[in-house]
Structures are given as C-alpha cells and as structure tokens.
Design a protein around this nucleic acid. Structure first.
Length: 213
DNA sequence: TCGACGATCATCT
DNA sequence: GATGATCGTCGAG
C-alpha cells in the first residue's frame, strides 16, 4: 500500500452518522478503518482495525449495559455513538470500545485486534515486550492493542471525530473477506454465547486468540 | 464496608 | 490446556 501522508483520504474522519446504527452493523463497518492516536496534538501512531465484537446493550446478556444497567462506569455507553468507551479489566488491562447507536441506546463495539500502519516503533515501545514480537503480539488482542496505543481510562469518552483517538475512513473491506463467529470470554452470558457478533478480516496476521476464520 | 468476579495475557505443563 | 497476576466495579449486607 502507498505511504500514508497528511492529505490521504484514508485519514478523513468517519462521518458521525456511521456510528448511530446498531452495534453489529457498526462492528462490521469498522473492519479496515484506521485508529489514529494523537498525543499532545501530534500523531504518534496509526493502526488498522482487523477484528471487532458487537455488544447490543440492554437486550444483550454479555453487555455491561444488560437490562438497562447504568453505572458510573457504563455511563459513556449511553452517549450518542461516535465516542470511545474504555474500561479496566482483570486488574491489569484496558479494553477499547466504540460507542454505537443513538443516545440512550448503549450499544458498543469492542476493538479486539489492530495492525500497525504507522508509528510501529512507538507502538512496540508502548507494549514493552522483548523483541522480536511474534504473530499477533503487537495488536492481536484487546488488552494488547490498548497497551500498544497507550489507551487507558483517560481516553474514555473521547470523540473519535477529533479527539486524542480518532477513527478514519481507512481501508474498508469486502464482505468476502469478513469472517463471523461467536464472541470471546462471555461464558456467563447464557444463550448469547453463540450469537454471531464477532467480526474479523479473514486470515489477517494480527487476529486475537482464539483465532476466527 | 466487603466479597466475588471479570469483553485478558503471559507463562507455565 | 491450566493457572496466576492484580484491582476496579458493583451488588449485597
């Protein structure tokens, strides 16, 4: 692919309406899009989304907002789609979500894997792992990609149109390149364990475990 | 206040 | 495949 430059149309922010649809639609649409990480106004890294999961709010037993549960932590999900929802998990990791749907419809899209487009050295440094990094070790998992992009609770609520974390047009993918399967790590969610709400770019090297497609 | 648990990962066997 | 790390969050008391 050609190098990314400032005038690159792939860097144009996604329009706000994109995020106002249901979580599963947004999750599929975000494949191939770019996350642009900015620190103090400077772009330090660009990463391409290669795997997502949808969480469908009040009607989804796997969602933090199941049954309309509304707490200080989940408040961000009740905002209109288009901002980041970041939470802390297992005492050591963060997970990055894109809020979807209109206000008070707490849908979210968990970003499960990204691949580096630009600023790979910076991302590797953020990960703090000994080199060389193996397949999927940089951005192949929700905790890993948050480390690589230095995402923590301070990013929670950031607008993806113009904040410290942005989401741009990137390189959308064809349906034929998309693998779909059940979500990971939600064994507590009853019937919802089997819902086909995990989306990935088929065969991509940075997919999370267990691999889909 | 307290106890249980988690949308994970690295490091074992 | 199994397990420990590690702590914010939330519901129960």
């Amino acid at each position: 692919m050609p190098p990314a430059v400032a005038s690159d149309p792939r860097r144009e922010p996604l329009s706000a309406e994109i995020y106002l649809r249901d979580g599963d639609v947004v999750a599929r649409d975000l494949l191939g899009r770019w996350l642009i990480r900015r620190v103090d106004g400077m772009t330090v890294a660009v990463a391409r989304i290669v795997e997502t999961e949808a969480y469908l709010g009040a009607d989804d037993p796997a969602s933090h907002a199941y049954g309309g549960r509304r707490t200080p932590r989940t408040e961000t999900m009740y905002r209109p789609g288009g901002c980041a929802y970041v939470y802390f998990i297992y005492g050591m990791y963060h997970c990055l979500n894109v809020v979807a749907g209109p206000a008070d419809t707490p849908h979210a899209v968990l970003v499960r894997a990204v691949e580096a487009v630009e600023g790979i050295d910076w991302m590797v440094a953020q990960r703090g792992r000994p080199l060389p990094l193996g397949r999927g070790d940089l951005g192949g998992g929700p905790g890993k990609l948050c480390q690589a992009l230095a995402i923590d609770r301070t990013v929670d609520g950031v607008l993806l149109a113009d904040g410290e974390l942005q989401c741009s047009v990137g390189e959308p993918v064809e349906d034929s390149a998309v693998a779909i399967g059940p979500r990971v790590g939600i064994d507590y969610a009853g019937e919802a364990v089997d819902w086909p709400l995990r989306f990935a770019i088929r065969g991509n090297a940075e997919l999370s475990r267990p691999r889909l497609g």
